[in-house]
Amino acid sequence: MASGPWTTRRAELRRAAAAGLLALAAPALFAQDCGKPVYLTFDTGHMGVAPLVADVLKRENIRVTFFAAQEKTKEGDGSLGQHWAPWWKARAAEGHEFASHTYDHVYWRADLPDGRFRVRPSSGPQEGRDQVWTAAQYCEEIQRAATRLREVTGREPLPLFRAPGGKTSPKFLAATRACGWQHVGWAPAGFLGDELPSEKVSNDQLLARALRDIRPGDILLAHLGIWSRQDPWAPAVLEPLVKGLKERGFCFRTLREHPQYAGWIAQKEERRK
């Protein structure tokens, strides 16, 4: 990434300090020490690899951002259920960040002429059934996951969300932003491929592609377990990927420190006081 955005960010930090907001800006200030940041994010899944992911993150001493929904899991009562609550609490104690992935993993499907949206949950009581929602209903769904994250982590989630599948429209993004949520996607090279079938793309291929293509500033996407992948991506790819990127001079930051989102987060948190 060119130095321009980071120069701009330093100016923003000076202004924040003058306004008495240095505490909010401190994580971003730390990010200035790194010329090649990447932003690793995890969406929830069946959680089967969640303990292994946590082990790698702790061993490598990196912080990530988790986007959480209440999805079906291999054990327990869902990814945000009571079974996994201690796991989330432990990640909060390690300094990771959290954001909503909608509670019932609700996909945007289409904009409708009357201003509403066609959506489809992939979890919960309406799983697999198309629904017609207003923007307010979708925003409430984002908030449901954020509220549950606050309960299980003891920390306020970031005012960010990721739509399931990354599926959005300009109208949908404007509506969710208007009610206080900024959407986070991922970089093309940041799609780490753990959703792809093992028989078509091996872990070795995914690792080689990521190490070749990832660039400074990229947001990276993986999951805490994908049902359809028989050869789990984590930790087989995760640990060598983290080590390999570090060897290439990259460092890992959370979305709180991302220049596109840091100002939005600081503004929302200041208003919450």
Results as ranks from 00 to 15, higher is better:
residue 1 M to A: 12
residue 3 S to C: 02
residue 4 G to R: 13
residue 10 R to H: 12
residue 10 R to W: 15
residue 11 A to S: 05
residue 13 L to F: 05
residue 16 A to I: 04
residue 22 L to N: 09
residue 23 A to T: 10
residue 24 L to M: 01
residue 24 L to E: 04
residue 33 D to P: 08
residue 34 C to M: 04
residue 36 K to D: 12
residue 37 P to H: 13
residue 39 Y to P: 03
residue 41 T to C: 05
residue 42 F to M: 02
residue 50 A to P: 05
residue 53 V to G: 08
residue 53 V to M: 09
residue 55 D to G: 02
residue 59 R to M: 02
residue 62 I to T: 13
residue 63 R to E: 05
residue 64 V to I: 01
residue 65 T to A: 04
residue 72 K to H: 02
residue 75 E to A: 09
residue 76 G to P: 08
residue 77 D to W: 08
residue 78 G to Y: 03
residue 78 G to F: 03
residue 83 H to G: 09
residue 83 H to K: 12
residue 83 H to P: 09
residue 88 W to R: 09
residue 89 K to M: 06
residue 91 R to S: 06
residue 99 A to M: 01
residue 100 S to I: 00
residue 101 H to G: 04
residue 104 D to W: 15
residue 106 V to L: 15
residue 107 Y to Q: 08
residue 109 R to F: 03
residue 113 P to S: 02
residue 113 P to I: 04
residue 115 G to S: 08
residue 116 R to C: 06
residue 117 F to K: 07
residue 121 P to H: 02
residue 122 S to E: 11
residue 124 G to K: 07
residue 130 D to M: 05
residue 131 Q to G: 03
residue 131 Q to W: 09
residue 133 W to R: 07
residue 136 A to Y: 05
residue 141 E to L: 06
residue 141 E to A: 07
residue 150 R to K: 14
residue 152 V to A: 05
residue 153 T to W: 02
residue 155 R to V: 01
residue 156 E to P: 01
residue 163 A to I: 06
residue 167 K to R: 14
residue 169 S to P: 04
residue 169 S to L: 02
residue 169 S to I: 00
residue 171 K to L: 14
residue 176 T to L: 15
residue 179 C to Y: 00
residue 181 W to V: 06
residue 182 Q to F: 01
residue 183 H to P: 03
residue 185 G to E: 12
residue 187 A to D: 12
residue 187 A to I: 08
residue 189 A to K: 12
residue 189 A to M: 14
residue 190 G to E: 00
residue 194 D to C: 06
residue 194 D to I: 07
residue 197 P to N: 06
residue 200 K to T: 01
residue 203 N to T: 01
residue 205 Q to W: 07
residue 208 A to K: 13
residue 208 A to S: 13
residue 209 R to Q: 09
residue 211 L to R: 14
residue 216 P to F: 07
residue 222 A to M: 02
residue 226 I to R: 02
residue 227 W to H: 14
residue 228 S to N: 06
residue 229 R to T: 00
residue 238 L to T: 07
residue 238 L to W: 08
residue 244 G to W: 11
residue 245 L to Y: 00
residue 245 L to K: 00
residue 245 L to G: 00
residue 248 R to Q: 15
residue 253 R to W: 03
residue 254 T to I: 02
residue 255 L to G: 09
residue 258 H to K: 06
residue 260 Q to T: 13
residue 265 I to M: 11
residue 266 A to S: 13
residue 267 Q to C: 08
residue 268 K to M: 13
residue 269 E to H: 03
residue 269 E to T: 03
residue 273 K to C: 08
residue 273 K to H: 10
